[in-house]
Amino acid sequence: MPLRLNPRKLLLSKWTAVQPRNKEKHFIVTRLLLPEDPAQPITEVELEAVYSRRSQVIAWQTLTDATLWRQGWQ
């Protein structure tokens, strides 16, 4: 069963990378990237690595892929 997420409730949620790189395993959603047209859905979020503070922008749907991400810190 695929993970169901509401993109508007992702802010400050915690995620664990299934295959960590550069000691970056734990992440927090620090920002929702809102579309210019408020009627359009959110498509991207900003993730920040807890270890390095490096940020990256990803499509929020990527977080539903269990081969890449686990919800929470594990």
Rank of each mutant, 00 (worst) to 15 (best):
I28N: 02
Q19T: 15
W73G: 12
Q71D: 08
E24V: 02
Q19R: 15
P41F: 09
E46A: 04
G72M: 11
V45I: 15
L11M: 07
I28E: 04
L34G: 01
T16Y: 08
D65L: 05
A66G: 04
L63Y: 09
T67P: 00
V18W: 05
T67W: 02
S13E: 13
L32Y: 10
E44K: 11
D65W: 08
P38M: 04
V50G: 05
R31C: 06
I58M: 01
F27L: 03
R4T: 13
A66I: 13
K9R: 12
W15R: 06
L68E: 06
G72D: 15
R70H: 06
D37S: 02
T16P: 04
W60A: 00
E36M: 09
L11S: 08
E48W: 07
A39C: 00
H26N: 12
P41W: 03
L11N: 03
T64C: 12
K9G: 06
Y51F: 10
Q19C: 14
T16S: 14
L5T: 08
K9D: 11
T67E: 11
V29L: 06
L12W: 15
E46W: 03
T64L: 07
T67D: 14
E44M: 10
S52V: 03
Q71V: 14
V29Q: 02
P7L: 06
K23F: 09
V18R: 07
L68V: 05
A66P: 01
K23Q: 09
D65F: 11
T43A: 00
I42W: 04
L34D: 01
V50W: 05
E44F: 10
S55M: 07
P2K: 14
W69F: 09
A49E: 06
T30S: 15
R8E: 13
M1V: 13
R21Q: 12
K14P: 00
T43L: 00
E24M: 02
F27A: 03
T64P: 00
T64A: 04
W15D: 10
A17I: 09
S52T: 11
N22C: 07
E46Q: 05
T30P: 12
V50E: 13
F27G: 02
T67C: 09
R31G: 04
K9H: 12
E24Y: 03
A66R: 06
W73Q: 15
V45F: 08
E36N: 08
R4M: 12
V57D: 03
F27D: 01
V57G: 04
F27S: 01
W73V: 14
A39L: 00
D65R: 06
E24W: 04
W15M: 09
E48A: 05
L12P: 00
H26L: 11
T67A: 13
L47E: 03
R31M: 13
W73L: 15
S52A: 07
F27E: 00
S52K: 04
S55D: 08
T43N: 01
L68K: 11
A49Y: 03
S13I: 07
T67Q: 11
I28V: 09
L11P: 05
S13Q: 13
L33Y: 09
Y51T: 05
L11R: 04
S55V: 09
L10E: 13
A17Y: 14
A59G: 01
E46L: 02
L12A: 10
L32D: 04
L47A: 00
R70L: 08
S13A: 12
L32E: 06
V57Y: 02
Q61R: 08
